[in-house]
């Protein structure tokens, strides 16, 4: 049942209709840990917080939406919903209540992937708490990568490692699922284990990788590597830009 349409901020719409010169002048109000700050429109949450004078020691990383370090929660003024996002990827809007999650103390099992027994219950052995899942789907709703988190936990629970690995493939380990979970499951670590198990025991070994590793062991690239080690910065740069790249 739809309670209300997703809160599309009127401010965002208004801002987009404005001419660039006007937008440059526009300031919005954000509330960082409860205190109001005026920041220019168009910044990401992370930059808005920096503009307001906060410095990120933790909770910031690649600033490009890949590392998952800047997981954040926010709420729009007047809305009951607690939203989740990556601070480096989300535009700060007028009336946002912001804070930052610097670190998620999630449960992480220690294991030696080489020694794991890849049977049907191996994930359940290391993370028995996945049996506490109540299918509330908060994890899926909170995922900034739009993954079907609940479904991969459920796949892991029923021993379908391959499905769990496939569904969690794009996980960036931000931990927002874990923040919201009422069963205290560390979804992202479960997904990582599933992918590791899949890579190690289920997926076929790529032939080209085996061959390349053999070549490396035989010392085929030693000479080229030695050359790189002593190369000066200018030549390194040149070589870098001339490298083989995937055709776009």
């Amino acid at each position: 049942m739809k309670i209300m349409e997703k809160n599309s901020s009127a401010t965002e719409k208004e801002m987009k209709e404005k001419k660039p010169a006007e937008v440059e002048q526009a300031f919005i109000s954000v509330y960082i840990m409860g205190k109001e700050h005026r920041v220019p429109f168009g910044l990401t949450i992370m930059k808005a917080m920096e503009y307001a004078g906060y410095r990120f020691v933790r909770g910031a990383g690649c600033r490009a939406g890949f590392c998952g370090a800047c997981a954040t929660i926010y709420r729009m003024k007047g809305d009951y919903k607690l939203e989740t996002a990556l601070a480096c990827q989300t535009t700060a809007l007028d009336g946002m209540y912001l804070t930052q999650i610097p670190f998620m103390p999630a449960n992480k099992s220690v294991y030696d992937i080489e020694k794991l027994n890849p049977d049907i219950n191996s994930i359940l052995h290391l993370y028995p708490e996945i049996a506490r899942c109540v299918s509330c789907n908060m994890c899926t709703r909170s995922c900034p990568q739009d993954l079907e988190v609940m479904d991969y936990i459920q796949a892991a629970l029923r021993g379908d490692t391959e499905e769990a690995a496939r569904l969690s493939f794009d996980c960036i380990q931000c931990g927002l699922c874990t923040v919201r979970c009422m069963a205290e499951i560390s979804h992202y670590h479960v997904g990582q284990l599933a992918r590791r198990l899949y890579g190690k025991y289920y997926s076929p070994t790529p032939r080209h990788l085996t061959e390349r590793l053999e070549e490396m062991d035989e010392g085929k690239y030693d000479e080229a590597m030695d050359e790189l080690v002593v190369m000066d910065k200018e030549n390194l740069k040149k070589k870098y830009w001339k490298r083989d790249m995937e055709v776009k």
Partner: peptide, 9 residues
């Protein structure tokens, strides 16, 4: 509807 255990144990 199979259920989890019918897919493993």
């Amino acid at each position: 509807y199979p259920g989890c255990t019918l897919k493993s144990y």
